[in-house]
Design a protein around this nucleic acid. Structure first.
Lengths: 211, 211
DNA sequence: GACTTTGTTTGACACTTGTCAAGAAATCTC
DNA sequence: GAGATTTCTTGACAAGTGTCAAACAAAGTC
């Protein structure tokens, strides 16, 4: 956790021991996430993952015990990237409007730019209902996202001198419902969906605050 | 659509032509839905479906062109059962409270009694993001559910002499978000989740109405 | 340099998958 | 009942799966 992950993606440099194998794992995971995001959990095989990477399918098994091990590592890795997305906005926003606008902008941005990743997330969350091995990781991420939404909402409440009228899980479920709707519908109508999402979220947000 | 589906599940009786093969299809679909609900889309094979039914795997292919054909038939069949669940409540409720209570009761009831079916639904909706062949059927159901929620909300608004403050897609996304959260969390905590769901929905409902 | 450790490739295994086809059984038609 | 049609069973196929292990290469150690 204390390692300074510098630049230099080209030169493998001198990374010894546990750090090196961690690098490989991350590289594998990143590659796996790409294919998973495109194909979905159901039709992604280890060989497909290996093919779309610079490694062979044997390497995958050298670094991960089995398929579930790889995928749950991917999920955990993904989690670190997604939950702090809005932190900067929350901290710098000086007014409720600024916060809302910044939040919505980032939200639609990630919707558009990282659609496959979000598709995969909803896919994996569904899979976790059938595969216990995924459940812990999924609920951990869910909690992280819930906290993220909660930070935004409480900050928003502060800025308008009000208090939230719903608890954290409720707020998360509501916003997540809107976001999932957007993710599902994005493929069919990429032009309209993002603006619809911002419209809807900004309609709902004020209703969750009492002044 | 006009056929009167009577009782007599034992005696195949005299059902001729297209009706008979439709019966088999329905039987197959019902059996398939059961296994799909337990195992999820990813790890349900045609053979598994056949094994858990009274038929052999060859029969499946006699009545359905391929796997997708079967599953999308299942989805369509499922749709007819799920979207009118609340119609009676909507029609008979004489007050807003009665409507809310009836709606919430039915909602938690189906959550508890038909968990596998709901799990499957969210699974298939996620799959539809990766498999175009499912997309049309899934969006059709989504629309049906949206209309269902909308009927409830507008009726609710009528009974309190108000009007909805969000449009139909928004209302559906919000309620669906809460419901999906409940479905996902149900396995982990079957005792608390249903009451939490009713709490949250009944907290949210009034916020979607302006009097 | 030789030797050990670590990392990688390759090919194989047992198994499951969707699909199909040939034939048996049941049903219907006359 | 004989013959034709529909329905079902069985077994096979090619392709793909996760997993593993033995050969090979690279890096590190003395």
């Amino acid at each position: 956790m204390t390692s300074a992950e510098a630049a230099e993606p080209d030169r493998p440099a001198r990374v010894s021991g546990i750090d090196k194998i961690e690098r490989r794992r991350v590289a594998l995971a990143e590659s796996a996430l790409k294919t998973l995001g495109e194909l979905g959990y159901a039709r992604t095989s280890l060989r497909e993952i290996a093919n779309n990477s610079e490694f062979t399918h044997g390497v995958v098994h050298y670094y991960f015990r089995d398929k579930i091990d790889l995928i749950s590592y991917c999920v955990r890795y993904y989690k670190t990237k997604c939950a702090q997305r809005y932190d900067e906005v929350v901290e710098t926003a000086a007014s409720a409007d600024e916060l809302a606008t910044g939040f919505l902008a980032k939200m639609t941005q990630t919707l558009v730019e990282e659609t496959p990743m979000h598709r995969l997330w909803y896919d994996l969350r569904a899979q976790s209902m059938f595969e216990e091995q995924l459940r812990d990781d999924v609920t951990a991420i869910d909690q992280l996202l819930e906290q993220m939404i909660w930070r935004i909402l409480t900050r928003y409440a502060d800025l308008v001198d009000g208090t939230p009228t719903v608890d954290a899980p409720t707020a998360y479920a509501l916003i997540d419902g809107l976001f999932e709707q957007a993710v599902v519908g994005y493929a069919a109508d990429p032009d309209e969906v993002p603006t619809q999402l911002t419209d809807r979220v900004s309609q709902v947000l004020p209703k969750l605050i009492a002044t």
